[in-house]
């Protein structure tokens, strides 16, 4: 059963008024302009036992992603492909509003929206992950953990997943006499796309990007837009209640294209990727 956690208390309304007034002057609570994102830092390979891992912070929000690989059967409708699944957990140590237990609807939504961008941009070449058609293939388990929550866990999660994928060293298997066995070697995934998301918050008829926690609680509407390196839109999710003025969408798409490019440049530079 899906239950709303939205509360618009009096203080929230006062904060909203304050943030809105700042927005009308092109300002934010933390000194950013409406379309500024917070500083991003990326550390990869932090967890040696994972096949790929990344710790990403975006302002005060910290995300840890790890990848583990297993050998399993391909899906029956895609016998020539390996597969991947994305899971996300909002850890109780990240925020007073997160509780222990299995992923709630926010965790499920985070995982599915990140999954959507990776899948639809065809970032991972799944055919290369097949070992024996219809029988054996690599399965990537991509797990997202929110470690510290200061608003907007979507964008740093996508960055962390891509950083973990881009730097992953996957144990290599080979087929010998119809059986798969470990070779002791490792291979890289060679990503085919870099789809980054940009999160928007709307108050009345104005929007801002990358809301921090205090802003997030004051938003009327929140929207996530994923963009790949060819400027295609690869995922969208309106992830809050509220009326979104139809005419804002086009402007937000333009900003999403620009901001995703900014994140992509930073990503390529930090990981020293050759693209």
């Amino acid at each position: 059963m899906s239950l709303s956690q939205m509360k618009k208390s009096l203080t929230a309304r006062i904060v909203q008024e304050k943030i809105y007034n700042l927005l009308t002057q092109g300002m934010r609570l933390d000194g950013r302009s409406p379309t500024d994102i917070r500083p991003v830092s990326i550390v990869t390979g932090l967890v040696e036992k994972a096949d790929g891992s990344a710790l990403v912070s975006m302002g005060g929000t910290k995300i840890l992603v790890g990848i583990k690989t297993e050998i399993g059967s391909p899906y029956s409708d895609r016998p020539k492909e390996g597969s991947f699944t994305v899971n996300a957990e909002l850890l109780p140590l990240a925020s007073i509003s997160f509780e222990p237990g299995p992923p709630d609807e926010r965790g499920v939504e985070l995982a599915r929206v990140v999954d959507r961008g990776i899948r639809e941009s065809k970032c991972i070449d799944l055919e290369k992950l097949c070992l024996i058609e219809g029988e054996k293939a690599y399965i990537l388990f991509i797990d997202i953990y929110v470690l510290d929550y200061d608003g907007n866990y979507y964008d740093p999660s996508t960055i962390a997943v891509l950083a973990a994928l881009a730097t992953a060293k996957i144990p290599k298997y080979e087929v010998v006499n119809g059986k798969v066995q470990k070779t002791g070697e490792y291979f890289n995934l060679q990503l085919q796309a870099l789809p980054f998301t940009v999160t928007f918050g709307i108050i009345k008829e104005r929007f801002l990007v990358d809301p921090q926690l205090e802003e997030e609680s004051a938003l009327d509407v929140s929207l996530i837009i994923g963009v790949d390196e060819k400027n295609n839109i690869v995922s969208i999710q309106k992830n809050s209640p509220g009326l979104m003025p139809e005419n804002l969408l086009e402007q937000m798409i333009d900003v999403a294209v620009e901001k995703s490019n900014q994140i992509r440049r930073k990503f390529i530079e930090t990981l020293n990727l050759k693209i």
Binding site: S121, Q237, K238, L243, P245, E246, D254
Partner: peptide, 24 residues
Amino acid sequence: AMAPRLNSIVLLQLNGRLTKEELK
């Protein structure tokens, strides 16, 4: 999904790849 009288979008998701023009 829209509230047509209010010219507002109440649900919006995209699963797939579209250019900005196609989206419009």
